[in-house]
Design a protein around this nucleic acid. Structure first.
Lengths: 215, 215, 215, 215
DNA sequence: AATGAATGAGGATTCATTCAT
DNA sequence: GATGAATGAATCCTCATTCAT
């Protein structure tokens, strides 16, 4: 695989693939469809990504590497002094990144639902890494009494679920609830909601209850 | 499609298909693999389910028909007099059904993430129906002052998400959090958690805050 | 692979493949060409022989199994009491079998010239077996003073070469020497020639020399 | 095709191709494999040899041109006064040339077993030429009573077979007879053997019989 | 009810080659 | 002289399906 500076055709293939994968899934999409959509020859896909599987891995890798590059920027930001700052900043950054790359995010979230080798590898590398980061923050927050004595697993599952929900339930929201994820201010509202949850469930302070769902 | 009393081979095919779909997804599984796993001839799948797509639709239909048959039992149960009873009873029943049919639930939840015609149809029929039921209960609950003045969409999304989370995040829980969904008492703990959330966020009463994640 | 009683299509494929392989070699022939020649669908080749490689192995296996079934008939024939009888009877039988299956023989002889795994396997199984049989006969012949004290390797190589020459040099004989292998009495003349060589080079008797090439 | 002085890359390609052809045959080898083995770009093969077929023809042509250049040196050598000298000198020279270019020899001998246009062309040009040369010598030898009254075709076939046997049966000798063609003195022993055969079968003199295979 | 044979369409991939640089 | 990009055709194989039995 050529992984130098991306050229135009590579990006065209990438974009076309993502669009098709979003609708039909990886296995439901043929490289011919991708080639047609990308207006290129089928052989080019093998040329640039080695194989269909290589294209999948490339997209996955790209998603997670950018994901963690953003995370590391936050972790090294000296402004985040409290664990609260760090935690909220992380979630904000991740959600922003994901809202800006909806298709890719949705694609990745869906494919890892399968029980494939790739899915398992991603779990045991990337998600373990993510878990470790959040775990450390929670642990430190609890040590400094900044956070309540919460059950780690439940917080972690909630966060993970919160981070992927807008992309996993995009359809449900569009077609059933008729509230679009695409709406400009949806992202910020969604992030705000998280802050509320965070304050009520993690922070060690007497806070106002029952706010988030009330009008 | 033969809708009569299920015979042995039909069930064998169903079981084999579900198992394979769990690992490889619908598009990633060939009817040959299913036939091999079910120890039957390929032609039998077409014979019993008309086509591969027919098998998919059969599984979906079966899932949702049982799903709603359970729901209607609850709705017609005269014991559920308050909206609180009704709401909690519904969630309990649904979760129980789903925990008893993990593979099928997970399969359905995953396949409807695609942008196919079938997925959209399911959204606009089954999930609309589900939404209508929960919406009515919330509306009535708010009218009788049993519930707080919550934002419907947020409650609905939360419930929907809560109902599918254990199946969508099964992998994540197993391989990253190392807390297994298969554990005997996981289901009841998960249901209890919902009750807490329900009391804190929907019920119109002065309740104890910050309970759910604290030790 | 179906290896029950051969049906008509299987034989048609076999025949077509053999014809094409003879002209173009295994690697030079596509399964499409075979399918066209056999007037069947490409998928049938996979259906009956698993894969192109499977077809190759099938032809090879068939050649050698028939080959050795003939050999074993000779070995168990009680009429062959002397080693001379046995040796000559073997060569006669093999040559007859090969002359009756020219294409197959030529195909096999050509493919094993490659340095592939299959070729090496065939060497170390079938040809070792053949060598063992001839070696034993020579050894016994030498013990009983029926044969001269010849160098085994040279006799073995000569025999092997003699057995395959008409098929390997078929082209040369046709197009350069203009003496056709297809001529009715060529086979018997060729076999007679071997007898002469055998008498002059192996038999322990004062024989008339320089016969074979003189007019 | 570039016929100028061979540059380094051309030779690298040639060597790599020959090595791969030996193992996999011409049709079984892709130019990509050759390019990889020769550590050059695929396009270079087309550049230097026009096409894959061009490479084949180049190797064939090179083999036979060198082959006949050696032959003509022998034919013009005034020292070879008798037909016996000439005949034996020819065979010696050819065998030496071939033993020094084993891979090329083997490759050529194998490819001409196919029924392709190229193979037929080679038969009708190069091998006809060879045959003509040997025929003339035999004829003259018979005329001068130097040789016996042998059947031309049988002698010619024997000679042809003898000249290619070590290369065609290389595998058989290695893996079955376990006597290596690579052994230093094998070539000279092989040539000596031919001399014995020649004396016994062609020369018009009372010679000692039954020598060649006895210990 | 159940199966083996057979098919045409389409799957991913690799092929030899060309061309601009 | 040499290369990387790009291509269309062809590779083998698998797909879901049909049909006669």
């Amino acid at each position: 695989m050529n992984d130098g500076t991306k050229n135009e055709m590579m990006q065209r293939i990438e974009k076309a693939a993502l669009q098709l994968f979003t609708h039909q899934g990886f296995d439901g999409t043929s490289i011919r469809e991708i080639a047609t959509a990308a207006k290129c020859n089928v052989a080019n896909i093998s040329y640039y990504f080695d194989s269909k599987k290589g294209l999948l891995e490339y997209l996955m890798k790209q998603y997670f590497e950018t994901y963690f590059s953003y995370i590391h920027v936050v972790l090294q930001d000296e402004n985040n002094q409290t664990m609260t700052d760090l935690f909220l900043q992380l979630v904000d950054t991740i959600l922003h990144y994901q809202f800006e790359n909806r298709q890719l995010t949705r694609f990745v979230q869906r494919e890892i639902l399968l029980d494939t080798t790739l899915a398992r590898e991603i779990m045991t590398t990337y998600f373990m890494r993510e878990k470790y980061i959040f775990s450390s923050i929670i642990h430190e927050g609890k040590r400094t009494k900044e956070f309540q004595k919460v059950k780690d697993e439940e917080v972690l599952l909630y966060v993970r679920s919160y981070l992927s929900a807008p992309f996993i339930y995009e359809h449900y929201m569009n077609e059933v609830l008729h509230c679009s994820v695409w709406e400009k201010n949806y992202a910020s509202k969604y992030i705000q909601n998280f802050h509320q949850w965070f304050h009520r469930n993690l922070l060690n302070q007497v806070a106002v209850c029952k706010e988030n769902f009330s009008v």
